[in-house]
């Protein structure tokens, strides 16, 4: 645990030094500029649009971070051979893999937390500006705490994607890893179609194959509750709990596989 913690902290430190957090500035500017422009445009519904925009931006920024840092975590160390001296220290390779993962998740969590604060600040400002005229027409209050549910689900998605990126980067090149990880993200959102393949195709084996893929590939669509939350529709706690359980188990499987591959790997 000590080793994992130290490796994780080092990942966080490096990404902060690498100016990864600059994206937060971009996020804040985007959100503020958008809210200013939209307030000129739409009839009292700008708050809904800001909510959508903020959540979408968090997810997109997080996705790019997860993929591009995630694939670099291991492959960069191998490519630059910094791993040689690291692995000669009294650590296990599995601890290296898990430490790297925890470090990136930590970085993402801090990032998302800061974005959430900025998000609520903009929403609060919008509510203050709007005065009492529009508010009765809103589906939900501006600084709706339920939005945190969507943020939490975004975090879960990013954690899964990070694990996918790490998995690929233990055995393939950075470019290929990036492509595959984005592919998994997209598939993860279309997954539900695979389950209903029999509606399109008549072949039994193909349907079974599609069904198997549905269960094996990461299923991210159910983790996307942005629309529900923005429209103040109910999102039961049990549903969120199931999503969390799914994500954690899936991540555990990916990390186990990553550790195994990494453990047996030669560093030429």
């Amino acid at each position: 645990m000590r080793v994992i913690r130290h490796i994780a902290v080092n990942v966080f430190k490096e990404s902060v030094r690498d100016k990864v957090l600059y994206n937060l500035v971009l996020f804040a500017i985007l959100l503020m500029a958008a809210s200013y422009l939209l307030s000129q445009l739409t009839a009292g519904q700008d708050i809904k649009i800001i909510k959508d925009l903020g959540l979408a931006a968090m997810q997109l920024f997080g996705l790019f971070m997860a993929v591009f840092i995630g694939i670099g975590l291991v492959s960069k160390e191998v490519e630059r051979r910094s791993i040689y001296s690291l692995l000669s220290k009294p650590i296990r390779r599995q601890e290296f893999v898990i430490g790297k993962y925890v470090g990136l998740v930590l970085t993402l969590a801090v990032n998302l937390a800061i974005m959430t604060v900025a998000y609520y600040a903009v929403l609060g400002y919008m509510a203050w500006m709007a005065g009492s005229w529009f508010k009765p027409g809103w589906e939900a209050p501006a600084m709706d705490p339920a939005l945190l549910k969507a943020v939490a689900m975004i975090m879960l998605q990013l954690m899964v994607i990070t694990a996918v990126a790490l998995f690929f980067s233990t055995f393939s090149s950075p470019m290929l890893s990036a492509g595959l990880t984005f592919g998994f993200y997209i598939v993860g959102h279309f997954n539900a179609d695979l389950k209903h393949f029999e509606a399109i195709i008549d072949s039994r084996p193909v349907v079974y194959l599609a069904r198997a893929l549905y269960y094996l590939l990461p299923n991210l669509a159910p983790l996307d509750v942005k629309a529900q939350v923005v429209h103040a529709l109910p999102v039961p706690a049990a549903y969120l709990l199931l999503n969390t359980a799914y994500a954690f188990v899936y991540i555990a499987a990916l990390l186990t596989a990553s550790s195994f591959i990494f453990l047996r790997r030669d560093f030429k």
């Binding site: 430190k13 030094r17 690498d18 630059r80 910094s82 040689y84 001296s85 000669s88």
Partner: peptide, 10 residues
């Protein structure tokens, strides 16, 4: 290691 290399930002 031969021609060692470490982390840029530390």
């Amino acid at each position: 290691p031969e021609s060692p290399y470490f982390y840029d930002y530390l």
